[in-house]
Design a protein around this nucleic acid. Structure first.
Lengths: 192, 192, 192, 192
DNA sequence: CATGAATGAGTATTCATTCAT
DNA sequence: GATGAATGAATACTCATTCAT
C-alpha cells in the first residue's frame, strides 16, 4: 500500500517535472525532494533516471497500441475505424498530456537501446495505422493522389502538437478537440 | 573571411550535433572538436553554449516572420494568402530541417529570458497567421464551426512534425511536400 | 543446525567473493545473494561487513599461532623445529589459500582497531618464529652473517606469495610444495 | 613546467595515499586536497581514478622489464645473470616501495582490461626470468630436483614481500638487502 | 585572436546499515 | 529469527566557463 504509493508518487512527480523543465534540467534530487522521499527510495524502485523516463514511453506506447488494436479488431468500415482511432489518440493524448510533452521532446535522452525500442514500437503503431489508410484507399473512400506517408504524417502531427497548445480545463473539452481535429483530418482525407 | 568561416562552421556544427544527439548530450568540447577549432575560439564568437542554441531559434523566427509578413503584404485573397503562407512554412522548415529538430525539442534548455523571447515571437507569428484565418472566415471561405485556435494548431502541427518523418533527398521533394500538406489543410479548412 | 549452516555458508561465500574480486568490490548484497539468504539474516549473524572480513584474519591467525606453539612445544632441535614450522605454514596456507589471498591484500580495509590487533598477533607469531632462528644461530646451525629480520622475511614471503601462483589440484601437491619451499629456505639458512 | 609539476604531484600523492590507506579507501577528493589542486585539474591529466592506479603498474612493469632485458642482454653466465637480476629487482622494489605496496594489493581494483594487461606483462617478465633458470639448469649450476615454477616463486616472493617489512632509511641499506636476499636465494638454488 | 590548463559547482549512483513488521 | 523497504552519507566523474599566456 505504502509501497505502491511511493513508486506511483515518484512516477507522477517525475513526469510533472520532466514536462515542466525538461529531463536534462531535472535532477534526481529535485524529484525526490518533490516526492518527499530520499534518493535511496527512488533507487530502490527504479534502477536509474533513465528508467523513470522510459516508464513514460512504455506507458503511452502500451496504451495507444492496445487501443488501436482493439479498434481495428472491430472490423468496421475504414472511415469509421479511422474516425474512432483518431479520436482515441487525441483523447488519450490529452489524458496523458504531460507524458506527451515529455514523449516528443526527450527521446534522445533515453539510452541507445531504449531509443531503438521506442522507434520499433512507434513503427509498429504507424504500420497498423497506415494499413487502415490503405484499406480506405482500396475501398475508394480515401484519396490516392497523395503519398500514404504524407497522409499518415498529417494526422500524427496533431497529437504530437497537442502539448504545445492545448490546455486541459480550458474552453475546449477533450471530446470536442478529438472530434474537431478528426473532422479536419477526415475532410482532407476523403476521396474527391 | 577566416573569421566568418569559423563562426559559420561553429553554427553549422552545433546545429548538426544538437539535432542528432540533443542539446544536453552535446558538450562544448564535442562541438569544437567537430568544428576543428578550440574552446577559446568558440568563446571568442559566442558568449555561451546557450548563445549557440538561441542563434538557431533566432534564425528560424526571423526567417519565418519575414516571409509571412511579405506574403500578407501582398494583399491577396485569404485562400491564396493562406496557401502561400503554408507552402512557405513547409518549404523553409524543410530547408532548415535540422534547425527544426532542435527548435521543437530544446526550448526549455534556453535561459528563462530567451524562452520568454521565443514565446513572444512565436505568439506574434501565430497572431498574424490567425488574422488570415479570421479574414477568410469573414469572407465566407473558411469554416466557422471549429474554434480558430484548433484551426491554427491543425496547421502548425505539420511543420512541427516534419523533422520526425521527412527525409530531404527522399522520394518526396520539398515542393511536393509543401503542396500536399497545404492541400490537405485547405481541404479541411474550407467552408462547407 | 540450520543456524550454524547459515553462518558457515555466509563465511564461506564471503571468503570466496573477497578472494575473487576483493573486499571493496564485493557488496553485502552480492554475498547474501550468493549465499541464498537475505540481508537481515547476515546482520543477524554478523554485526558488519567488517566482521566478515575480520573472521578470516582471526581464523588464520588462531590456526597458525596454535600450530607454531605446538611445534615449538615439542622441544626438538632448531633445524627440526624450523622444518616442521615452515612445512606447517605452507600447508595450512595452501589449505586456506582463499583466506590467504584476502589476508595479504585487505588488511587496510579492516577498522583501525582490528588492524592493530592483526598487527599485534602477527608480531607475536613473528617473534616466536624469530626465537627459533636465534636458537639455531646459538646452536651454530643457522648462519649469522645476515640480519635476523632478513632471514625471517625470506621465509614469510613464501606463504604470503602462495596465493599468487599456487593452484590447489595442480601438479604440485601441498606436501610437495611444503617440502620444496622449506628445503630451499633451509639451504639458504644453514651456517657455512 | 607548472604542468609537469601538477601531474607529477598528483602521481606522487596518489601513490602515497594508496600505499598508506589502500586504493578503495582513498577518495579522489583526498588526493586533490593533498596535492593542493582541484578535481578538474586531476581529470584534466587523468581520465579516471583507475588511470592513476594503472600508472603505478605501468611504471613498475616498464622499469623492471627494461632492466631485466638489459641484464639478460649482456650474455653473462647464468649464475651471474641471476645475481644481477635478483639484486636489481630488490633494489628497484626498494626504490619504488610505495608503488610496490600498491602493486601487490590492488590489482583487482583495476578495470578488467587492465588486469589482463598486467597479468600478461607479468607473465612475460616471469617467462624471461624462468628462461635464465632453465639456462642455469642446462649449464649444471642450478638444481633440477625442484619444479621450475617453485624455484621462480621462491624468488618472486621476496620483492613482493618487501613492502611488508623493509623500512627505507633503517639499518639495512638497499644494497645490503639486495645482496643478502639474493645470497639466500642463490644458496637454495645451486646444484648440489 | 587563440590556446588549453584549471576551476568548482553540479550530477547520478552506490551501499552498508537500520528497523518496523 | 528473518524480511526487505528505506535511509543518508559518500563517491567518481562531468562540463560550461574563465584567464594567464
Amino acid at each position: 500500500m505504502k509501497t505502491l504509493n511511493i513508486k506511483e508518487e515518484l512516477a507522477r512527480t517525475s513526469v510533472e517535472l520532466f514536462a515542466r523543465q525538461g529531463y536534462a534540467k531535472t535532477s534526481v534530487q529535485q524529484i525526490v525532494d518533490a516526492a518527499g522521499v530520499t534518493k535511496g527510495a527512488l533507487y530502490h524502485y527504479f534502477n536509474s533516471k533513465d528508467d523513470l523516463l522510459f516508464d513514460i514511453y512504455d506507458r503511452i506506447l502500451t496504451l495507444q497500441h492496445r487501443n488501436l488494436t482493439e479498434i481495428i479488431g472491430r472490423n468496421l468500415p475504414a472511415v469509421e475505424t479511422m474516425r474512432l482511432a483518431c479520436e482515441d489518440v487525441i483523447m488519450t493524448s490529452i489524458d496523458c498530456i504531460r507524458e506527451g510533452a515529455v514523449f516528443f521532446r526527450s527521446q534522445h535522452m533515453l539510452s541507445e537501446d531504449r531509443q531503438e525500442e521506442v522507434k520499433r514500437r512507434r513503427r509498429e503503431y504507424n504500420d497498423a495505422f497506415t494499413a487502415v489508410l490503405v484499406r480506405g484507399q482500396s475501398d475508394g473512400v480515401f484519396r490516392t493522389d497523395i503519398p500514404i506517408q504524407v497522409l499518415a504524417a498529417n494526422f500524427f502531427s496533431d497529437p504530437h502538437y497537442l502539448s504545445y497548445w492545448y490546455s486541459p480545463g480550458g474552453t475546449i473539452s477533450r471530446e470536442q478537440a478529438a472530434a474537431q481535429l478528426t473532422a479536419l483530418y477526415l475532410a482532407g482525407l476523403q476521396a474527391s
